[in-house]
């Protein structure tokens, strides 16, 4: 099972060149059953990564390009009157899939963005008073352009909080870009993806994550980090949901590294990507100033 996971990781590295740590963190997010937000400039490969991730997990996925005139109904579906049967018939929206690729999520109006809220947290949607549950597993992999780009509106804090990870790919290094240009074959890079996990394997891996051992000493360290953010005025405090997310992510990170216990390094590794968008919603994904500050000011005695 681990070998399968690592071959998936390797083949993802074939698709996105020179970004192994981001890929590992993205996998980490999916193993921890969290939603993933990719933020970067246009053309950096975030959509490719989203597609590749969805593909490699062997899940059914739908892609929605978010625009400013996208309506909530376009996303979750609506009841349409069928003249023949003289009944309302529910037309499911793209949200009813295992993976929702929400491209350029911050181009949509706040109204549409908030329609995703319920789906992301409760894994269900309510339409005309009727609650319908979403398929399992259910992931949202969203991409967004940096906030200063034209026609973007900031995601509300509540929605940002529902994304477990916020990642940024950043520019590839010179060698990786050279390789990218040399092997330009005209086909989509997604065809390079050869390995897949099946649903059972993914489920089994996800079930292993909560079993990872966490010592009291490590919990104390984590709580010290979180508490530190609550005592400062220059950042938003981290909520209990955030501390749960950090721990879950650290566990997944330990699992990927084939350990059955979480170390302080796991926490430190995932912390900036889990905490930064919660500490300062208006920050960009490239800089993790506040979370680094918190790490520096919380002495690690372990």
């Amino acid at each position: 099972m681990f070998t399968q996971l690592h071959s998936v990781e390797q083949s993802l590295n074939q698709v996105i060149l020179g970004k192994s740590s981001q890929i590992r963190l993205a996998l980490c997010c999916l193993l921890a059953e969290g939603h993933l937000l990719l933020e970067d400039l246009p053309g950096m490969g975030k959509t490719t990564l989203a597609h590749a991730l969805a593909n490699s997990l062997g899940l059914s996925y739908r892609r929605v390009q978010f625009t400013s005139d996208l309506l909530p109904g376009d996303l979750v579906g609506m009841n349409i009157y069928d003249a023949r049967s003289q009944q309302f018939h529910f037309q499911a929206g793209p949200v009813f899939s295992q993976v929702l690729l929400a491209d350029e999520i911050n181009r949509a109006s706040p109204k549409t963005q908030s329609a995703l809220l319920e789906a992301m947290e409760e894994k269900q949607v309510s339409i005309d008073g009727e609650t319908r549950s979403l398929p399992t597993p259910f992931f949202v992999i969203a991409t967004q352009n940096p906030l200063f780009h034209a026609g973007t509106s900031a995601l509300p804090e509540s929605q940002l909080d529902r994304f477990m990870f916020r990642l940024s790919l950043g520019f590839p290094d010179r060698q990786a870009e050279h390789q990218l240009l040399r092997h330009d074959s005209g086909n989509s890079r997604l065809t390079l993806l050869t390995e897949q996990l099946d649903t059972e394997q993914l489920r089994a891996l996800q079930l292993q994550v909560p079993q990872i051992t966490v010592s009291d000493a490590l919990l104390d360290y984590l709580l010290a980090l979180v508490n530190n953010s609550r005592q400062r005025s220059d950042m938003l405090p981290l909520s209990p949901r955030a501390s749960k997310a950090i721990l879950r992510a650290a566990k997944a990170h330990a699992l990927i590294n084939q350990r059955n216990y979480v170390t302080a390094d796991d926490v430190q590794r995932v912390f900036p990507h889990v905490a930064e968008h919660r500490l300062d919603p208006s920050s960009s994904a490239q800089d993790s100033r506040l979370s680094q500050l918190l790490l520096q000011q919380t002495p690690c005695l372990l």
Binding site: A264, D265, Q268, Q297, P299, L301
Partner: peptide, 20 residues
């Protein structure tokens, strides 16, 4: 471990873990 490392630990940045 901290006792055993003593001087070496003193130079590490505060956020670095002992294993790191």
């Amino acid at each position: 471990l901290q006792q055993a490392l003593a001087g070496m630990v003193k130079q590490k940045p505060a956020q670095q873990s002992l294993s790191a």
